[in-house]
């Protein structure tokens, strides 16, 4: 007795092959989504309590990163400046501006300005600014052209594959130590050649160490 119609043969074949493609498609969609800025918040400018512009302070005035981020060379945390640092200049410049009222209020009342964190690594990742900065990784390499950002955004994905891309190919990114804080740095000559030279000079560890789990997850 014939239970199934003939066409079910075709349907079953199509659905078998179709399932493979469907699962692959699902995988691709999921992967694209988790890399997208919808998930990573890459390139999304954040609102802040004060409209602080790096483009103005770094790009136009030319203030060095370390003027405010004082601990970037010796600690894991680069440091968000205390209100006092703002007031170094803004006690006299734009001293009446309504934009800066939250800053003055913070200075008067000794309450911290609560900035919105832009670069937020997961807590299971160990990251130390000082080792990167002291081994020739430029601010710009991870943070992008901060001197062109009116409001701060995250220029990189900050996902593990992104970290590993550099940890496995440091020669592609290293720059001379005196150029670490430069924005818009262009290597003089071939980057790979320079990178290999700097790897030796700065004693960059082997890839097996740099990509080991416990380097970042400790």
């Amino acid at each position: 007795m014939q239970i199934f119609h003939r066409s079910t043969n075709t349907i079953s074949r199509v659905s078998l092959f179709g399932a493979v493609f469907f699962i692959a498609l699902l995988g691709w969609v999921f992967d694209s989504l988790q890399r997208s800025s919808y998930n990573t918040q890459q390139n999304v400018a954040r609102e802040q309590p004060v409209q602080f512009s790096h483009a103005h302070h770094v790009g136009a005035i030319g203030i060095d990163c370390r003027y405010c981020h004082t601990s970037v060379e010796k600690a894991a945390f680069a440091g968000i400046p205390p209100t006092k640092t703002c007031m170094n200049c803004h006690s006299q410049i734009w001293a009446q501006s309504p934009y800066l009222e939250p800053v003055r209020e913070s200075y008067r009342t000794d309450r911290s300005i609560e900035w919105t964190r832009v670069h937020d690594l997961p807590d299971f990742v160990y990251f130390d600014h000082s080792i990167h900065v002291n081994k020739g990784v430029g601010c710009e390499t991870c943070h992008g052209r901060v001197d062109q950002m009116p409001l701060m955004w995250q220029a990189s994905r900050l996902q593990m594959s992104w970290c590993l891309d550099c940890h496995r190919n440091t020669e592609k990114y290293l720059r001379p130590k005196d150029q670490v804080f430069t924005m818009g740095y262009v290597p003089a000559g071939d980057q790979l050649e320079l990178g290999r030279k700097l790897q030796k000079e700065y004693g960059i560890r082997k890839v097996t160490v740099l990509e080991s789990c416990s380097t970042c997850h400790r």
């Binding site: 894991a76 945390f77 440091g79 968000i80 000794d110 309450r111 911290s112 609560e114 997961p122 807590d123 299971f124």
Partner: peptide, 21 residues
């Protein structure tokens, strides 16, 4: 849970201390 573990971080906010630091 794993991304934001309940521990203190540099310049983090605290609801325990009066100055929120």
């Amino acid at each position: 849970e794993m991304y934001n573990q309940p521990r203190y971080k540099p310049l983090g906010r605290s609801d325990f201390f009066a100055d929120n630091r």
